[in-house]
Nucleic acid binder design. Structure first.
Length: 99
DNA sequence: ACCATGGCCGCGT
DNA sequence: AACGCGGCCATGG
């Protein structure tokens, strides 16, 4: 496990509660690596222990689900179980629940 | 050390 | 509103 990955997982775990979501780009900013959003996706893909580490709460900047290591269908399921509405592969009220 | 690839982003057309 | 395109950066071969 690299330091960068640990930073991703910790930041995510501490900054994004159930019921809300964030984006790869935003998570990168929170880590003080504003331009590493792409690398964040790579890290999420490695995804050590989901859903312990809530990588399913990280979505695209346009409100679409984005991908998921275990299938975007499962990502949607996980989100809905936390009360996040998803319709047509997009987050409902994205602007309101995105940090 | 080099190259390619990805759970991406924003801008321009 | 839908593409295309270049930029960015950690990983793996």
């Amino acid at each position: 496990m690299t330091a960068f990955q640990k930073l991703c997982y910790d930041t995510l775990k501490h900054h994004v509660p159930a019921g809300s979501v964030t984006t790869y780009g935003n998570l990168a900013k929170l880590m003080k690596h504003p331009k590493a959003y792409r690398a964040v996706g790579t890290a999420m893909n490695k995804n050590p222990n989901a859903p312990e580490v809530p990588c399913h709460r990280v979505v695209k900047s346009n409100g679409e689900l984005g991908d998921y290591a275990f299938g975007s269908n499962l990502k949607q399921k996980r989100l809905q179980e936390e009360g996040v509405q998803v319709v047509n592969n997009k987050i409902v009220n994205f602007k309101d629940i995105c940090l």
